[in-house]
Design a protein around this nucleic acid. Structure first.
Length: 265
DNA sequence: ATGACTTATACGATAAGA
């Protein structure tokens, strides 16, 4: 008789680029206490590891793993249930930028990414972005054959489709919208991952980021770049994806809002 | 309009974000 398979389960998982965890900590604590996701992936913590506020998260029922650095980047995974087998790198190449963190939680391989911005198509940072995405696709291909379903979430800094930008004409072939970036995202879809928001809502337009300048939030001039992807088992169990626009109305908000997926029991 | 806002670093101005 075969051993009974552990049923993977995550009820609710959130991704949020907080744009400085130091500044945003009170908002993050308040949001987590209210919404109670089982897992939360944070990006742009912008703090060295020694300053990570582990105890503040413990106090509200979350354990954490983190990979930070001063000033830039930085990622963390928070969880209400035990965090197993954390990985701070997607391959053997050392990475100066802390943009990747993964852990096994509830029988699911959770992957948190802060994809490089890229700046402009002719910038060296753009080449770095594409190379980083190629490495990510290879990593995803390698874990896809493993036993655990994969939940991939984070700030992708790519607009998947024209429906996901406020200005499809003006942004054509520009950074975040360019064919090479969309091709890199397509390679991840090619590894069996689905964009859960788009699977559930094929025609809906909501944004997860708005520029601080020009009253862009008030005018709803934004982008959907904070994505939740998963392999087929989890995709089939996905019931709802919520982009919490309200969080952008807070005093001193992040320019990104939390995006949450709810899975069926 | 190479802007506009916010952050870190450091205490003024610059780099970076998206």
């Amino acid at each position: 008789m075969e051993p009974e398979k552990t049923v993977p389960h995550l009820g609710k998982a959130t991704t949020w680029n907080v744009n400085s965890l130091k500044v945003r900590l009170p908002q993050v604590l308040e949001w987590l206490s209210r919404e109670k996701p089982d897992v939360a992936c944070l990006q742009e913590t912008k703090m060295p590891d020694a300053q990570f506020p582990h105890q503040a998260f413990r106090d509200i029922g979350y354990d954490a793993v983190w990979a930070g650095q001063p000033t830039y980047n930085g990622v963390a995974i928070l969880s209400r249930s035990p965090i197993e087998i954390p990985q701070t790198s997607m391959d053997d190449h050392p990475d100066d930028h802390k943009r990747f963190l993964s852990a096994r939680i509830g029988g699911v391989r959770v992957v948190n990414v802060y994809v490089p911005n890229g700046q402009d198509l002719d910038s060296p940072k753009f080449s770095y972005k594409l190379e980083w995405l190629e490495r990510l696709a290879r990593y995803l291909g390698s874990i896809r054959s493993g036993p655990d379903p994969v939940l991939l979430m984070g700030d992708f800094n790519i607009v998947p489709d024209d429906l996901d930008t406020w200005d499809p004409q003006g942004s054509k072939d520009q950074i975040f919208h360019s064919p090479p970036e969309r091709k890199a995202l397509a390679a991840i879809f090619g590894e069996g991952f689905s964009d859960l928001y788009r699977v559930l809502y094929p025609d809906r337009q909501e944004f997860s980021w708005w520029d601080y300048r020009m009253g862009n939030f008030h005018r709803n001039r934004g982008l959907r770049i904070d994505l939740i992807l998963s392999t087929p088992t989890l995709t089939g169990a996905c019931r709802e994806v919520v982009i919490d626009r309200q969080a952008r109305k807070h005093e001193r908000p992040s320019d990104h809002v939390p995006v949450t997926v709810v899975f069926s029991a």
